[in-house]
Design a protein around this nucleic acid. Structure first.
Lengths: 344, 344
DNA sequence: CTGAAAGCGCTTACAG
DNA sequence: CTGAAAGCGCTTACAG
């Protein structure tokens, strides 16, 4: 406690510069001397003072992770993967939940700048690059996950929303469904927007097919449980308010899927005979339900790891052109879409 | 970018000491002067340099959150609650996943000490206080969550494991079950240990009742998916290897419950007619399954918030005696235990 | 209430 | 390869 480079330097009869070169690994030191310094550091129980280092270098080793809500399994899994990659480099991770609230996001970006973080991985609340301007101005390397930013000013890692939605909804159409309901989150963010647009596209290509859209707005639900309730309400309205209710649901993410399942259960509708259902994200219980759920699973571990790797690269080489990584979703054909699928 | 107290001081014709007193809020400054300083800080776009502050104070505002795995919904929810409380105090949160690996925990504790964190919330991998010794030696206020530490040297927040297990297993016994299987995680940690002990106790009080124990050891499963698989395997063995298989399952946590459900589904056993099931933790889908799951839900938001509050108190008053908070689980009686419950 | 000044523990040009 | 020394941007006794 309280051991500094000065103590080690004195003990070894060298300068603090030499101690720094050995312990911070920057410069060339005679290996015999280096060994002596390392030994003294251990003997004295030396611990780095990251604050001193950060002050001096004007940059810390820490990275910031800015996501909507770690309580969502999708983001929890990404957080885990990011943290694993960071730990391998001895980098601390600051966890920031925004609830997609721009004010809260702004607060956290400011905090991260004040911490002089080495870089930030962010699931931006908006595609407007203006929201991330403070980060850019502070020269902090940034990588987007799950969403992209207009003009692609920074690297991004996200799933192929178009391909996933087309495959899922295409399957519903192939099963003969012509009245399809899309339950999405706010379409201000990339995922729901792209997934919904893909729905519209493929449905407009199919004569006689209609799309019912139900968007869960941000204001209406904060937190996983409230979002489930919201989706349940939306699905109930879709099923009961109309003369010709949808015969199939497309759910833009796993939270929404749970809400729709809740609604179907309460209404006593069976899958796939009464209603078919497909959605983004897979959960362990989806394959344990009586009717298993067809899902486009997102490779969250890959997404998190790749994002971290892209960030570390950007930290090392700030001028590298931003790479946009689109990873394919993994389609898991199960029973809720109607079955009969070859790889079912 | 690059604005310091010196710039503000010059602009206002005061000393940097005064600027610090205004902007860091420590001392008394004439309010007219204070206004001028605050105005200048805004005009110049001043941003704090936390590293400088931490170096000088030898303590940062950051808190460390050390948990097993944020991918587990239980810990994700706690992380969210902790982060909410921390954000309200402008405190950054460092996320550390240990996988209950003592080596990894040690690495993270060292990292947190090097960061001079203001305090740590930890779900300790072992009840042995020795593992947290570095934290104590560094004088870092610590609060335990989900687990307690032998001798209760620090505040702790955890659910009433005994009451929850007794209520759940008591219900199985009341439904006439006499061969009950307990599927637990490693009993080196508090939760599975206490829950299993409670099972043993209540079953030993019941004549003719037998307990089958299946412990999922740490080594055998890292990560949520592997733990589910492990529990599935354990449950399958319990159901198939014995002449007299269990007629009911007690699952020590929600991850294990999913594995057991998986096994029952594959074996074609129905609940509650073939097998009954109860467990700790509740998941949204548990009330959507064909047979809904009776569960002892843990009030994770309360646990996380209380832990943060206890930590902030310990930071303000390091000599306060450690408070142990035991929160009751919320029992949700559903169909998997056999039904017929009044509050079902 | 305010200021002058020391100092927290590192890193890093600059010399040698 | 190694050292002397300045300096990163704050905070905080100490005076006044």
């Amino acid at each position: 406690m309280g051991v500094t480079y000065a103590d080690i330097a004195k003990r070894c009869g060298v300068s603090t510069a030499t101690v720094s070169r050995v312990l911070a690994g920057s410069g060339f030191v005679r290996s015999e001397l280096a060994e002596r310094v390392r030994g003294a550091a251990i003997d004295l129980g030396y611990r780095h003072n990251q604050a001193a280092r950060t002050l001096r270098r004007n940059r810390s080793d820490t990275i910031g992770l800015v996501i909507s809500d770690v309580e969502q399994p999708f983001f929890a899994s990404i957080a885990r993967a990011v943290e694993d990659e960071a730990a391998a480099q001895d980098r601390p991770v600051l966890l920031c939940n925004t609830d997609e609230d721009l004010e809260r996001e702004r607060m956290y970006l400011n905090l991260l700048i004040e911490e002089r973080v080495a870089g930030v991985i962010v699931a931006p609340s908006t595609e407007d690059p203006e929201a991330l301007a403070p980060l850019f101005e502070a020269g902090i390397p940034t990588v987007a996950v799950d969403r992209r930013i207009s003009g692609d000013p920074v690297p991004a890692v996200l799933v192929d929303n178009i391909a996933g939605a087309r495959a899922l909804v295409g399957d519903l159409l192939a099963h003969g469904h012509r009245r399809i309901a899309a339950v999405t989150g706010t379409t201000e963010g990339t995922p729901s927007r792209e997934r919904l647009e893909a729905c519209r596209a493929i449905i407009s290509e199919t004569s006689g097919a209609r799309l019912y859209e139900a968007e869960g707005k941000l204001r209406d639900a904060i937190g996983v449980n409230h979002t489930i309730e919201l989706a349940c309400r939306l699905a109930t309205e879709l099923m009961t308010d109309r003369h010709e209710p949808p015969t199939a649901f497309f759910c833009a993410n796993g939270i929404l899927t749970q809400g729709v399942l809740q609604a179907l259960r309460r209404l006593g509708r069976r899958m796939p005979s009464d209603v078919a259902l497909v959605g983004f994200d897979d959960l362990p219980l989806f394959s344990i339900l009586e009717t298993t759920i067809t899902a486009a699973a997102q490779p969250t571990e890959t997404i998190g790891r790749r994002a971290a790797q892209l960030l570390f690269r950007a930290i090392d080489d700030p001028d590298a052109p931003p790479e946009i990584v689109i990873v394919p979703p993994e389609l898991r054909w199960r029973d809720s879409c109607g079955g009969g699928h070859p790889s079912s």
